[in-house]
Simulated assay, not measured.
Amino acid sequence: MAERQPLLAIEGLTISLPTADGGRASAVRGVDLSIGEGEIVGLAGESGSGKTLSALAVLGLLPGGAKTGGMIHFAGRELSAADGRAQAELRGKDVAMVFQDPMTALHPMLSVGRQMTEHLVFHRKIGRAEADKIAIDMLERVRIPNPRAAMARFPHQFSGGMRQRIAIASALVTGPKLLIADEPTTALDVTVQAGILRLIEQLRRELKLSVLLITHDLGVMSALADRVYVMYAGRVVERGARAEVLARPRHPYTRGLLDALPHGSPSDHPLTALPGSPPAIGRFPAGCAFHPRCRFAEDICRADIPELRDVQPGRAIACPVDPLSAVPA
């Protein structure tokens, strides 16, 4: 029996950006990532790690002057070579994106109904009345009170949590196969955040939706993702099933992110901040980019860029010394 192909497969993705002095800076350096049908995959890392750029490459929405390499396959179609029109047809129809700030993601001068139906009419070639009905049904699905009246209202008339639900409904109204959720809960309080995560999980089950969840917060990952990729300085440094990665991290960076999360009693689990800061794009140190912040760094870490290697089925890390392989979580 042939192995089922993933819905999205990214292979060896590289992205470079122009610099002020006329040169180029490498921002994403050989990322491999896959998402199966109906799967939620988490992509974690600090700001500047290349998470969002990798996602924008799928949609052809990279900044001007960006250059890419590698391969992107979606539903058996190679996207890297697609022309601008093909990318535009893909955006919002087969792949949709929800951005991190619900306060600015929606246009303040357009009604909710206008924002939810414009791309629906464009992609499905349907009339306005049918588009309105589909939009109202989706607003009801994401639990917006009185969805018909909500269509005539404007974003500022809703709370942050309701705006994010509207943004998700707008992204899903065309029936995409893949939802890219970029820090969808960052600007929300903890209670509202939990509701948005439950909503994404519910929609995944009901719509058989695949989700790429981008976040710097591994706590969000623990509530939702099936598999996790951890990025640092433009490269994937660890990947695996959520339960394995979060319960027993193998890369020091992943462990550092987890140690910086508040959990349990402070006396039992003291917070430990990661020392230093992530390197700026184009200023990655030689060898393993994490070595200046890593307490386990050895000479080999400063000299060679570690390849992402399998350490068990479905689990891989990019660390030449693997210091946490026998360390309990």
Results as ranks from 00 to 15, higher is better:
123 H>I: 02
95 V>N: 01
204 R>G: 14
119 H>L: 13
160 G>Q: 08
94 D>T: 07
171 A>L: 10
157 Q>I: 09
158 F>A: 15
204 R>V: 13
106 L>N: 12
111 S>I: 08
122 F>C: 09
78 E>D: 11
116 M>T: 12
168 I>R: 09
112 V>A: 06
129 A>Y: 00
157 Q>A: 15
149 A>I: 07
135 A>D: 04
185 T>F: 12
99 F>T: 07
148 R>S: 09
135 A>P: 09
195 G>C: 03
77 R>V: 14
97 M>I: 03
112 V>T: 04
107 H>N: 15
96 A>I: 07
185 T>E: 03
184 P>I: 07
197 L>C: 07
192 V>G: 01
133 K>H: 12
147 P>N: 04
189 D>A: 10
170 S>W: 10
87 Q>K: 06
159 S>I: 11
132 D>K: 11
198 R>L: 07
78 E>H: 13
93 K>Y: 10
199 L>G: 09
191 T>E: 00
120 L>D: 06
88 A>R: 14
173 V>N: 05
102 P>R: 01
133 K>E: 15
114 R>L: 14
169 A>I: 09
155 P>K: 13
81 A>L: 02
172 L>H: 07
106 L>D: 08
141 R>Y: 09
125 K>R: 14
91 R>K: 13
171 A>I: 07
134 I>F: 05
157 Q>S: 14
85 R>S: 11
80 S>C: 06
172 L>K: 08
156 H>A: 14
